[in-house]
Write a protein that binds this DNA or RNA. Sequence first.
DNA 1: ATATATTGGATATATTTTATCCTTGATATT
DNA 2: AATATCAAGGATAAAATATATCCAATATAT
Lengths: 170, 170
Amino acid sequence: MKLSEGVEWGLHCVSVLAGLPSGATLPTKTLAEYHGLSETYLSKHLQALTNARIIESVPGPRGGYRLLRLPEEITLLEIVEAIDGREPLFRCTEIRQRGPLACEASAQAYRLPCGIHVAMARAEKAWREALKTQTLADIVNQYTQDVDPQQQQRRNQWMSERLRSAPKKS
Amino acid sequence: MKLSEGVEWGLHCVSVLAGLPSGATLPTKTLAEYHGLSETYLSKHLQALTNARIIESVPGPRGGYRLLRLPEEITLLEIVEAIDGREPLFRCTEIRQRGPLACEASAQAYRLPCGIHVAMARAEKAWREALKTQTLADIVNQYTQDVDPQQQQRRNQWMSERLRSAPKKS
DNA sequence: ATATATTGGATATATTTTATCCTTGATATT
DNA sequence: AATATCAAGGATAAAATATATCCAATATAT
């Protein structure tokens, strides 16, 4: 079992967008090139992030994507769920009700939830809670603190040559 | 993303095995029939649980499977990992090192771990920790407390007709 | 008008999960 | 000794999902 690779792509992209000047956007092409990713497939994930209202799209020339909210207000859980979906990791298919004996059981026998389901859901909640308590701002702080200054400068240069500013929508 | 259904199968099977008298075994056929599962495919998962030293196999007539340890000493994490593998949910592919700028980076630029990787690993640790602190004994307590007495009796009857006792191995 | 973007549907490819089959080896029973 | 019952594990096969591309439609700055 593993998360979609798109989750990693999305996390890196929103991290980059978080470092942009207010209002500025970057198009898919630039985000894909910067990370060495497929442009067309990345586009799908950026659409998903847009539908989740994490980023915002600006169509047309000089358009692109930018954050819709402050990095402090975007949790990692939102990003993960936007791309990978909101389905639980563990799906209880109620196999306790499937055997030859289950048919004869009384109506009330299965009113209490399946104990295995409960235990697995508890662990999953811990995972989601841990993702929920880390924001994009936490990532960006780690993200930019440790690169060497030269690299940082090359990065800023490269970005500034490609970013666009577009009027706010709403 | 989801866990293998085999995890659910395995959890239910070891729960049943936990309820058996000491030393007794049940064969794959019985475990599959009781839960309404494919016998051949369930066999694969029972093999995985055997390799993980969670259950023990007894070959030959009157053979089958039984727990290798006490329910209190078997964590849910062990069962999940035995069947679903020990790979992390989130795999960092180091895409920070893939872009056109990454090539020019100094040797030390990537000595610190990827911030996104760290954040995702933290959440994953919370999940594993929650699975580790719940044992098979916890499941079995929930599992058997709430069924109605009649059903409980039918279940015991059905099991007792099919279980075998085999001498301990080691 | 034109060029540059995103959007979303349709579709193709690759990978993983689910499932079965079959041979081998172990062992209890006759 | 012969037989029947069981697990082990390799080799496939089938189904489901993830990954990836393409294209027509729409929006918009120049």
